[in-house]
Design a protein around this nucleic acid. Structure first.
Lengths: 155, 155
DNA sequence: GTTGAAAGCTGTTGAAT
DNA sequence: ATTCAACAGCTTTCAAC
């Protein structure tokens, strides 16, 4: 994982459809070298895939919310079962299993506030493992485009 | 936004590097038609880009946390200023500006728990707009690969 | 909106350094 | 680990439906 790998990673996170030739040209290396490096990044599991990003507003899901949920009993079965249930709901974007006060944080996107309410009542109110529930509407969501390795400071 | 568009969206979210030919073959349409549809999806802003996904563990950032933060005064300047500050930190993956108890939820990824602690102390303790702060380690994070339009139920 | 064919580039390979 | 040259396969264009 040298400087060149980091640069390739950065470019492909910004634009996964840059042609290999163009990427090589920008980095000042041969296309075959660039191809080899990129392949190695995939093979080593550093790049896990290439994905199209979709604008949630453009597909009629402009309303986002974060749900904080506490479940009991705190067993593996309950955690895994609830996680699987929530992950499979089409409204759900992302599920965090967390330490501390709450057990789950769930990120959802729906067409409007009415449907958020309906969704919460239909999908959560009857789940008997839920002992605490809170929902927060999201005003803004900023995501970092590029993630880079952080150097260890512990040396 | 018909059935064909939805299928293209779904495929490109799973694998943005499917060749246009292959995608056309799977959908049973001509490559030129497929290219035209895909272009239209980009032009209409439905597809916003193509990005490589990176494994955080593979780049030495296996420890993730969620930070819940309350700031005061709750003015536009404070909100925007804090959002800009946090978004620019290399440890930060994502920033939510939310309604309700807290004002911000920040998703971070760092090399280890020690560096999480250091990060919190160095980057947050001296910020005078912060009036409340809580951090939760993330045990698991599941993200939906494909997001699809949700049909309106309000008709 | 959709198609098929042609032209120009691109990914990919293998031998060589 | 990197490069060059060459082939097969791809994207893209455009006239026609």
């Amino acid at each position: 994982m040298d400087e060149l790998d980091s640069l390739i990673l950065e470019h492909l996170q910004r634009d996964a459809r840059t042609t290999n030739r163009e990427l090589a040209r920008v980095l000042g290396i041969a296309p075959s070298t660039c191809l080899e490096r990129t392949r190695a990044l995939r093979k080593r599991g550093i790049i896990t895939g290439f994905h199209a990003a979709v604008d949630l507003r453009a597909i009629n899901r402009p309303v986002q919310a974060l749900l904080s949920i506490q479940v009991r009993p705190l067993s593996r079965d309950v955690i895994e079962g609830f996680k699987a249930y929530v992950s499979a709901l089409p409204e759900v974007l992302s599920v965090f299993v967390i330490a501390g006060g709450d057990d789950f944080l769930v990120h959802v996107a729906v067409p409007d506030v009415d449907q958020l309410h309906t969704f919460l009542m239909d999908r959560f109110s009857q789940r008997r493992e839920i002992v605490n529930f809170r929902s927060n509407v999201i005003y803004q969501h900023v995501s970092t485009q590029v993630v880079s390795p952080l150097h260890d400071t512990t040396v």
